[in-house]
């Protein structure tokens, strides 16, 4: 299974530790809020709203270099728009991987 990394952020910030940390702080805060709102939308079966939040979370999955995770998030978002949550559990596993990664940063 692919592992999250900071390659994208380090490249973006040209290795400047302070800039990477500034970005990480924003990503962590926003991701936490988005995951929480996504979970609420799924619980209330509001799949349109869940698709919107999955869309935003997908960006963060991409930031941490999870290419397969990004593709799965894309598929999940499209399914949600059709009112299906078939890929929800797999998406949740990716979310956990990302959350476990950022909690240590």
């Amino acid at each position: 299974m692919e592992k999250p990394n900071l390659d994208y952020l380090e490249d973006l910030c040209e290795g400047k530790e302070e800039s990477v940390q500034r970005l990480l702080n924003v990503v962590k805060k926003e991701l936490k809020e988005e995951v929480s709102t996504y979970a609420e939308a799924i619980a209330s079966k509001d799949y349109d709203s869940a698709a919107l939040w999955a869309h935003k979370i997908k960006h963060k999955i991409g930031i941490f270099g999870l290419e397969n995770g990004y593709a799965l998030a894309q598929k999940h978002e499209l399914l949600l728009r059709e009112g299906k949550k078939d890929a929800h559990e797999e998406f949740e596993r990716i979310l956990k991987t990302v959350q476990d990664f950022v909690i240590d940063l």
Binding site: K29, H59, K60
Partner: peptide
């Protein structure tokens, strides 16, 4: 998205 705005700002 605040993250997206900060990325553009950094770029």
């Amino acid at each position: 998205e605040a993250t997206a705005r900060l990325i553009i700002s950094t770029l």
